[in-house]
C-alpha cells in the first residue's frame, strides 16, 4: 500500500467540505498523496457556478453566520481556496463520478479543480491501494 489518502465526497455541505480541505492540506504538506472522488452533491459543490456561492450547512444551520465569522477570525480560507493551495504544494487529484456528472449534465470544463471524470470501478481500485480511506 502506498502512502495515499482516498476521500469519497458524497456531500456538498460546506462544513464537511471544510473538514475535508483541512485534512487534504495537511496530507499535501506531509507528502501524502491524495485522491478525491466526487459523488452526487460533491460534484454539484465543485460546479463553477456553485463553488463560491454555496452556503449549505448540514449541521447547526442556524449557526452559519457564527461559523463564517469564526473562520474569518481564525484566518481560515474557504474550503475551495484551501484545496487550491493543497493542489499547488502536494499531489492532489480530484475525480468526478461519471454517473453524477450525467445527473448534473456537466463536463470537466464546468467543474472547478476536477482532473478527470471516473467510474466507480476505477475508484474502487484506487481505494484498494490507499492506506487511508474516508467517506464524507
Amino acid at each position: 500500500m502506498t502512502d495515499k489518502m482516498c476521500i469519497t465526497v458524497a456531500t456538498g455541505s460546506v462544513d464537511r467540505l471544510t473538514g475535508m480541505a483541512v485534512l487534504v492540506s495537511a496530507a499535501a504538506a506531509m507528502d501524502v498523496e491524495v485522491e478525491i472522488f466526487l459523488q452526487l452533491w460533491g460534484v454539484y459543490a465543485f460546479k463553477k457556478d456553485v463553488i463560491n456561492k454555496n452556503m449549505n450547512l448540514i449541521e447547526f444551520k442556524e449557526l452559519g453566520p457564527q461559523v463564517v465569522e469564526g473562520m474569518k477570525r481564525a484566518n481560515i480560507p474557504p474550503w475551495f481556496e484551501m484545496l487550491k493551495q493543497a493542489k499547488e504544494v502536494g499531489k492532489v487529484k480530484i475525480y468526478a463520478c461519471s454517473a453524477a456528472s450525467k445527473i448534473w449534465d456537466v463536463k470537466l470544463e464546468d467543474l472547478e479543480m476536477v482532473d478527470e471524470v471516473m467510474g466507480a470501478g476505477e475508484w474502487l481500485d484506487k481505494m484498494k491501494e490507499a492506506k487511508i480511506n474516508l467517506f464524507i
Binding site: V22, S25, A26, A28, A29, M30, A74, N75, I76, Q85, A86, V89, G90
Partner: peptide
C-alpha cells in the same frame, strides 16, 4: 502566526 492549522505546515513545506 496569522494562519490556523494546517497553515503553518503548508508554510513550512513551501
Amino acid at each position: 502566526r496569522g494562519t490556523s492549522c494546517p497553515g503553518p505546515l503548508l508554510a513550512a513545506k513551501r
